[in-house]
Design a protein around this nucleic acid. Structure first.
Lengths: 188, 188
DNA sequence: TCTATTACTGACCGATCGGTCAGTAATGAG
DNA sequence: CTCATTACTGACCGATCGGTCAGTAATAGA
C-alpha cells in the first residue's frame, strides 16, 4: 500500500467540521481549513477532495456524532417529556455558556447549502427523517396512534430547529424556554 | 443640491435585497449586486456604502416590507387560529410553488450574519420582538392572561422559523402542515 | 535491496474578491 | 452664466480565492 497517511483522518475531519460549523461554508476559506487541519493544501485535497466534498464529509461527520448523540439520548433512559425537554435544554445551555456560537450545523447547512448542493440536501433530508423517527420512538410511551406520533414528532423537529434560529439571532433565552414548555404541553 | 440621483433608491434596494435573499451574504459578490442593480460599482458604493452596509439595508428593507406584511396580516381581520394558520400556509405555498427558494431572509440572516455583525443582530432582535408582539396581539382573542400570550407567541415564532429551516432543507411539506396543525392545537 | 505506489511539500496558477479614485457629467444656487 | 457640489463612469488596485502539480519522501511487496 506504499506510504501510509501521516495523520489521523477522524481527528482531522473533526477539526475541519469545527471550522464549517463555526463559520459556515462560504465564510470558510481553504486557508482556514489548512490552518485548522495542520495539513498542507495539497495533502488536504489529496485526502479529502475539494471544498464542497470536505463540507459534505464534515456535515456527515456532524450527523454521525452530534446528531447521533441526540438520537441515542432519545432512545435511551427517561420519560418522553424528560427527553424532549433535554433537547431544548441543550440549546439553552449552549446559548448561556456562550463559548461556541455555531448553533446546529444541520440547521446551518439547511439554510446555507441545501438549495445549491444536491448531495448536502439529501444528507439533510435523511438526517431529518432519522431525527423525526427517534422522536417518534421517544413518544411511543405517551402517544398511542402512530400517525399522531409522526405528526407530533414533525412538529417537535420544527420547534427545535426554530430555537436554533432564535438562539443565533440573539433572541432572549426565555423564548427558547417558552418554546420548550409549550412543546411539552402537547405531550399529554 | 447639485446633480440628483439617476435611479429610484427604493427600487434599487429592492433589487439588492432580492440577491441577498436568494443567495445569502457570502455567496453574493459585489458583481452580483452591480448586475442586479443596474448601477456601476462606484455609484453603488457612493449611494449604498460597502457590502456589509448594503446587507443591513437590504435586511431592514425586507423587515419593512415582507415581515411588516405578516405583522399587518396578524393585526388584521380573521380569528386568531386563521391568522396563525396563514403564517404556516405561506411557507407551504411558497415551497410548493418552488419558484423562489430564498425562504425567509430574517431566518437566513440569523444563522448567517447575526453572530459576526452587531448591527445585523440588533435588527434581527428588534424584528423578532415586533413579530412576537404582533402574534400576541392576534392571540388576545383566545388567551386571556398576558404572560400566557407572550410565551405562546414565543413558541409560535420558534415553530414558524423551524418550518423555514425544514422547507429549505428539503423536508417533506407534510412536516410543515403537521407543525401548523399542532401549533393550532395549542390555541384553544 | 530494488521498485512501484502512495503521500507530502510548497510554490504557483488564473480568476475573482471587495473596494478605490481621478476624470467627467449634470445639476441647483447665486 | 458661473461655479460649487454632487453623481456617474470604468479602469484599476492589492489581496485572497479555490485549486493544481512537479518534485521529493516514505513505505510495502517482490
Amino acid at each position: 500500500m506504499a506510504r501510509p497517511r501521516q495523520f489521523d483522518e477522524k481527528k482531522v475531519i473533526e477539526k475541519l467540521m469545527m471550522v464549517f460549523w463555526d463559520k459556515g461554508y462560504d465564510a470558510t476559506s481553504m486557508q482556514d481549513l489548512v490552518a485548522a487541519s495542520g495539513l498542507l493544501k495539497g495533502s488536504l485535497y489529496g485526502a479529502f477532495g475539494d471544498k464542497q466534498t470536505i463540507y459534505l464529509s464534515a456535515l456527515k461527520h456532524y450527523n454521525r456524532t452530534r446528531i447521533q448523540a441526540g438520537i441515542d439520548m432519545l432512545n435511551g433512559e427517561g420519560s418522553a417529556r424528560q427527553k424532549i425537554a433535554r433537547l431544548f435544554d441543550n440549546v439553552i445551555d449552549s446559548t448561556k455558556r456562550g463559548i461556541f456560537a455555531g448553533g446546529c450545523l444541520l440547521c446551518n447547512a439547511s439554510l446555507e447549502k441545501a438549495v445549491t448542493d444536491r448531495k448536502v440536501k439529501n444528507e439533510i433530508k435523511t438526517t431529518i427523517r432519522r431525527l423525526k423517527l427517534a422522536i417518534m420512538e421517544a413518544l411511543k410511551e405517551k402517544v398511542e396512534k402512530e400517525g399522531e406520533a409522526a405528526s407530533l414528532a414533525a412538529f417537535i423537529v420544527s420547534a427545535y430547529f426554530g430555537t436554533r434560529v432564535l438562539a443565533k439571532g440573539g433572541a432572549p433565552a426565555a423564548m427558547i424556554g417558552d418554546t420548550r414548555d409549550h412543546t411539552l404541553q402537547l405531550i399529554a
